[in-house]
């Protein structure tokens, strides 16, 4: 291989976000919007699992609620022909994530599991990732948030309590992924479908959320991802998100099929 082509390859590597050409896993969530009824169980489960702080009314009024997952509600039409659509939005773990190019200190990067991860310790708080995120999935620790005793006894020891001044976002419950990988390793087997369930998917009463590895062709998400109802949020931005939504079926639906 000539030096020229080596340099060329290297430069091309640099243009590709992330270190990994092939991920060990490509963790993906499929959310069936036809099942989702917008009840909010996932939001609450995320608070419980991920030590999210409660910021209070005043801060909520400034749009600083620290919810890693939110349910957006879009309304079409006027009374009496009102149509409402719900969509749970969390960090989409984009494979071509705008936030990853933005961080000057590599506090956010793509890991070998296909996850967009945030290194809390490395974050200096330039806000660039959050500004670049088209999904507004990132949340900032505006203050040092403390829980009133004894509510702090509920803190999940598997998840860091974040410091003031750093950015955070949905992790697909990376602590559960780690634990499942460790367990699989202890049992000398490969990670299998269903080993990992993030808190939101676990709580979801309607079963709208399914989580798994897209690299595994037999996994539930791989099968669901082939659905003709499949779409991804703001796909036109070419961020290649890892969250796949399945279209809501409704009377005045658009009826524009991708396939």
């Amino acid at each position: 291989m000539s030096i020229f082509s080596k340099v060329k390859d290297r430069l091309e590597d640099l243009r590709r976000p992330g270190y990994f050409k092939k991920y060990d896993h490509k963790f993906t969530m499929v959310i069936d919007l036809d099942r989702c009824n917008g009840c909010g169980a996932c939001v609450s489960a995320c608070y419980a699992e991920n030590n999210l702080p409660v910021v209070g009314k005043e801060e909520c009024g400034k749009s600083r609620a620290l919810n890693w997952i939110r349910i957006e509600r879009y309304v079409e039409g006027e009374y009496p022909d009102v149509k409402v659509k719900f969509i749970p939005v969390m960090c989409q773990h984009c494979s071509k994530a705008p936030c990853e190019t933005a961080c000057p200190v590599y506090a956010t990067y793509h890991n070998q599991d296909g996850l967009n991860v945030q290194v809390y310790n490395r974050c200096v708080g330039t806000f660039t990732c959050a500004t670049y995120c088209p999904y507004d999935a990132r949340r900032f620790n505006w203050f040092t948030y403390k829980r009133e005793k004894p509510l702090d006894q509920q803190y999940n020891p598997d998840v860091t309590v974040r410091e003031m001044g750093i950015m955070e976002k949905g992790t697909f419950c990376i602590q559960r992924i780690r634990a499942a990988k460790d367990r699989a390793k202890d049992e000398k087997r490969a990670l299998k479908d269903g080993d990992v369930t993030p808190a939101c998917a676990q709580a979801c009463p309607t079963g709208a959320m399914v989580f798994g590895d897209l690299n595994d062709p037999e996994s539930r998400v791989s099968k669901l991802a082939k659905s003709p109802r499949r779409f991804r949020l703001l796909e036109e931005l070419n961020t290649d998100p890892s969250v796949i939504y399945l279209k809501r079926v409704m009377k005045d639906g658009r009826g524009t099929s991708e396939e």
Binding site: L233, R248, V249, M250, G253, S257
Partner: peptide
């Protein structure tokens, strides 16, 4: 007053954010 809520705007403004399909098309696929 100002209501403390999370919704900024609840209209899609033609952005087709939450994509949908008709029941007829669902039956077809």
């Amino acid at each position: 007053g100002r209501l403390v809520k999370q919704e900024g705007a609840a209209r899609e403004l033609g952005r087709d954010i939450v994509k949908t399909m008709t029941p007829a098309e669902f039956e077809r696929i």
